[in-house]
Design a binder for these strands. Sequence first.
DNA 1: TACCAGGAGAAAA
DNA 2: TTTTCTCATGGT
Length: 222
Amino acid sequence: MSTLDPARLRAVYEALAVCYDTRHWWPAETPFEVMIGAILTQNTAWSNVERALANLRARIELTAESILALDPSQLAELISPAGYFNLKACRLIDFCQFYRESGGWAALSALPTEVLRQQLLSVKGIGPETADDMLLYAFERPVFVIDAYTRRILARLGLGRGNEPYETLRLACESILGPDVGLYQEYHALLVEHAKQVCRARPRCRGCALNKLCAMPGAVST
DNA sequence: TACCAGGAGAAAA
DNA sequence: TTTTCTCATGGT
C-alpha cells in the first residue's frame, strides 16, 4: 500500500520547478543515443558518461550496427571513462543485438508501451530504471522513472518509506500524476538536479527548494 | 583516503 | 525472499 499523498507529490514538483532549469537535461542527438547513455550511466555520474559518448562519437557513428562492428575490447576501451567498462561493453553489445534483431527503431517504437517495456527488461543488463529511462526519454512514453534520488527525496518528505518495490512506487506516481510524458521528464530531471545540488550537501534540506515541505508532518528530519 | 555517482545481476544467507 | 558482493573510473 503506497503512502503517497497526491497533493504533496504535486507540491514537490511545483516547488522544484521554480528553482531549476532542466531544459536539455538528457542531452542526446538521437533516441538511440539516449538508450546508449541510459546503459552507460548505470551507477555512474553523467560527466563520465559524456566522455565515453564523446569517445564513441569520435570513432563511430552511434548506431547499433557500428557498435556491433567494434571489437568488444575496443568498445570497452572507448567507454572506459564511464566505469565498469568490461561489464558495460557486454551490456551495450547485448542491447544492440536486441535492437537490431527486434527491427530497430521503427519496429520497437510501434509497440504498445507495456510490451516494449517487457522486451527491454528481457535484455540482460537492462533493469527497471534503465528501461524506464529509455521509455521516457527515448520513446517518449508516459512511464515515471524511480531512481535512488527519487526514493531518497520522497522518503525524506514522508511520501514513502524508501524501500517500496520499484513497481509499487512507479505505479503510484503514475496514478497520481496521470499519463503526461512532459511532466514525467521534467519531474525526474528536477528530482535528480535537486538531489545533486542541494540534498546531498544538506541532508535536512534546510534552505532548499523543498524547505517548507520538509517541515510538514510526516517528513523525515534526520 | 574515503565516499559517492542518473544500477543490475549473480551469489549467498 | 532478502541481503551482499561485484563491476571501475573520476570528482569531491
